[in-house]
Amino acid sequence: MSNRLINWYRFASPQAFYPLAGRMIPWFWVLAAVFGVIGLYIGFLVAPTDAQQGEGYRIIFLHVPASWMSMFIYVVMAFWAGLGLAFNFRLSGMMAQALAPTGALFAFLSLWTGALWGKPMWGTWWVWDARLTSELILLFLYVGFIALRSAIDDPRRADNASAVLALVGVVNVPIIYFSVKWWNTLHQGSSVSLTKSPSMATTMLWGMLFCALACWMYAIAVALMRVRTIMLERERNTEWVRAEIARGEAAEA
């Protein structure tokens, strides 16, 4: 037990995590590519058309995974942030920092694909639907997180302050979602929702599942890549970074 704890502590140090992440990244890329190809093959080539929505429904193979990821990443980010706040792990703040831009990107992609889905389905680019509105607010929360981080120069303070913000955000996301939903039903917005089709064919489900898995693997790979850069940058005055750079130079020479 204590042995395992020590192991965890070891990998929680940037020094040990940096090479480990470097070894894991290619595997996540491979998985992302494999799942992506399978998912897109099923979604775009095999799956039959949707009776009500026509071929435009295929956008959901992109839209739904992007929306899921934008939400998951926020929760994961808040989890890392909270861990950092509670136990003062150096790694957690860096992970939260590495996840934020990817989450924001997925939130943007979700809005973009949602708009392109809405135009043929609803006849308009934007509907004040509860989901779309919450997604927009989620993007604002990401932007706030990134802006707060980049405004604070001291990385430790930036870690802690943005962690508080992420936790406040994660408590608020459900409140915001339900208030927007309430507002939406009062204003009798759209009765159509994005994942409406009640009897989604199993083929479609499989396609969606693989696309979602591909996005997961992609997000992990990208976050690991970014966290490595952040580690080098922030630990540049330590011995291990010096050794790492020297080794890289020797390998290239």
Partner: peptide, 10 residues
């Protein structure tokens, strides 16, 4: 305002 306005929405 960037941080707080989204939280004011409810």
């Amino acid at each position: 305002s960037l941080l707080v306005l989204p939280l004011y929405i409810p």
